[in-house]
């Protein structure tokens, strides 16, 4: 495993921990999109169907369990926990996530490497992950008032995707036959979605002012 991949996984892990910290400790999910969190739970549930059948490494299995466990517990917190539920900004989180799930499913049925259930589900999870952040970005833009933890959560998620791109470039040059168009194009699309957010996040940090997004 190269350094980019490890750093990518770690920023992904940090993003989840930041969100759990906010929800578990402060008992608030203000500014967090439940739609995006439900999409991530679906992403991990469909991608890690191989968790008990294909053993890669202890690292892989543990990380998969963490991402599955954390994504479902975040959804549980936001839907069921009395205090957390109260801070959920339901009126602004109106993105219709079915509009993302269905096209991704159709695309996975059309474009995949192998036509097997596991492979199509895996491909679906790759496509869905690329766009799963959209409800969150829309919510940020609508609420305008972005607290530090929410900003950091989205920043670390974006950093994870950018580092994975560096990981793919590295692997392409160091491993034979390492060509994965589906993952690369989806990953690139996903990273580009963060570009706008990154621009405002970094300029607010440089100018030492509170992060706001233009309407």
């Amino acid at each position: 495993m190269n350094a980019f991949r490890l750093a990518g996984d770690m920023t992904h892990l940090i993003s989840v921990l930041v969100l759990l910290l906010k929800i578990h400790t402060i008992k608030s999910c203000a500014g967090i999109s439940l739609k995006t969190q439900e999409l991530y739970a679906l992403v991990f549930a469909t991608r890690y169907l191989d968790i008990f059948t294909d053993f890669i490494s202890l690292y892989n299995t543990v990380m998969k369990l963490i991402f599955l466990g954390s994504s479902f517990s975040i959804v549980w917190y936001m839907r069921r926990h009395k205090l957390v539920q109260r801070s959920y900004d339901k009126d602004h989180d109106t993105f219709r996530h079915q509009l993302l799930v269905l096209p991704c499913l159709i695309l996975a049925l059309l474009i995949h490497e192998q036509f097997t259930f596991k492979e199509v589900m895996w491909t679906f999870s790759i496509y869905l992950e690329a766009v799963a952040i959209l409800p969150q970005l829309v919510l940020l833009q609508r609420t305008r008032n972005i607290d530090n933890l929410t900003g950091q959560y989205v920043f670390f998620l974006g950093a994870y995707r950018s580092l994975y791109i560096l990981n793919w470039i590295y692997r392409y040059f160091t491993e034979p036959h390492y060509v994965h168009w589906i993952t690369w194009i989806s990953g690139l699309v996903q990273t580009l979605l963060y570009a706008d957010f990154f621009y405002y996040y970094i300029s607010s940090w440089k100018n030492n002012v509170k992060l706001t997004l233009p309407a």
Binding site: R5, N60, K64, E113, Q114, N167, E175, H177, H180
Partner: peptide, 10 residues
Amino acid sequence: SSGTNVKDEL
């Protein structure tokens, strides 16, 4: 490519 390589990623 069969995609076996990529499955070691998360």
